[in-house]
Design a protein around this nucleic acid. Structure first.
Lengths: 190, 190
DNA sequence: GACGATACGGAACGGGGGTTCCGGTTGTCA
DNA sequence: TGACAACCGGAACCCCCGTTCCGTATCGTC
């Protein structure tokens, strides 16, 4: 998946790397941005030192998780491109991604600690994502089924908004994310 | 403003309290949730000890800021109640609140560290807010101008989503909050 | 102006958590 | 099977930051 393959990892190292990523996913899902490196290492059945050999910094670990999320979104987009086009594909894509996001909603909070470097790891995938989803949007505009001023560049904002609504647990405040999603879809329609 | 008035503050104490709240507003606006107590005290021209006498915990200071935000939103709601009703009042209220939020967008990030206790300070104001805005919503439903399944309880979710979209600065991602607001308003309309 | 109550300042404390270091272990290759 | 490089574990390090403590200063009142 990565463009550069620095060198071949030793068998045990590769195994540990996978364990670490899995553990990170779990712990980030449970604790969000508050996840601690020690916990991740413990959950992976590995010492902190090992964790830090594979990911020299917490940011880099976060970056890996983010990258894998983008990968999954790209898969989703491609699946919809095969299955439909225009508005139908766009709505289908959005709703499916949102349901993925809802599955690990507390993980959404970790988007807050993403920085340039972490995001750079996902740049390639993001580019392809823009291409595919941009196709849906262009087609929908041609069909006149999508609000005229909407562009691909609006998608990150929407995703950020939705993700935050899912991830937050603001005290004593009711939360109805499904309602928000319906509102957004309705507002997107021409 | 507060229902309980524990005792009369000494003149200098009252002055310092105000300075602290002002400083907190500034520093939270600049640094969001990362704001430090030391910085706030320094900006207020006051020692940390003084800060802690007035607000025994960071949460309590956050609570004060949140409360004042809710107060302002309540004022906005009442102004719109005098001026209009139904959909017009609802949209006017939302857009005005959003523009207030946009003014100190980085302050939005501090909503993440609000807990029950901090929110409790704003409970009274929040109740009145629900009442006034609920009035707009009921009227709009009677007029048939608002999406049928929308209730007051959906508002926090929307606010959280919008606030996060404003407050985040996710790297290398375009951000178009105004577009999001238009989409939401369009989606709210029946 | 003097006295007690109320406040103030800011050095110091404590613990939480990311990161480093290095002595020991394990995979790989000849 | 021996030898070396690659890798591992986890105690220790250190900085950051909320919070406490207490000697000093200021306000209000008689």
């Amino acid at each position: 998946m990565s463009t550069i393959e620095p060198r071949q990892l030793r068998a045990d190292a590769r195994r540990n790397r996978e364990r670490i990523v899995d553990a990170a996913r779990e712990v980030f899902a449970r604790c969000g941005a508050d996840a601690q490196m020690d916990d991740i290492a413990a959950r992976a059945g590995v010492g902190v030192g090992t964790l830090y050999r594979h990911f020299p910094t917490k940011q880099e670990l976060v970056g890996e998780i983010i990258r894998s999320k983008f990968d999954r979104h790209l898969e989703t987009a491609r699946a919809w491109a095969d299955r439909a086009s225009g508005w139908e594909a766009l709505e289908g894509f959005l709703r499916e991604v949102w349901s993925h996001m809802a599955e690990d909603s507390s993980q959404q909070r970790l988007m807050w600690l993403v920085d340039e470097k972490a995001m750079a790891l996902a740049e390639t995938t993001r580019g392809e994502l823009i291409e595919v989803v941009g196709g849906f949007i262009d087609q929908a505009h041609r069909d006149g089924t999508l609000r005229a001023d909407f562009t691909v560049d609006d998608i990150p904002t929407i995703m950020c908004a939705v993700g935050s609504a899912m991830g937050s647990e603001m005290a004593a405040m009711p939360r109805n994310v499904d309602g928000l999603l319906d509102i957004i879809v309705a507002g997107l329609r021409a």
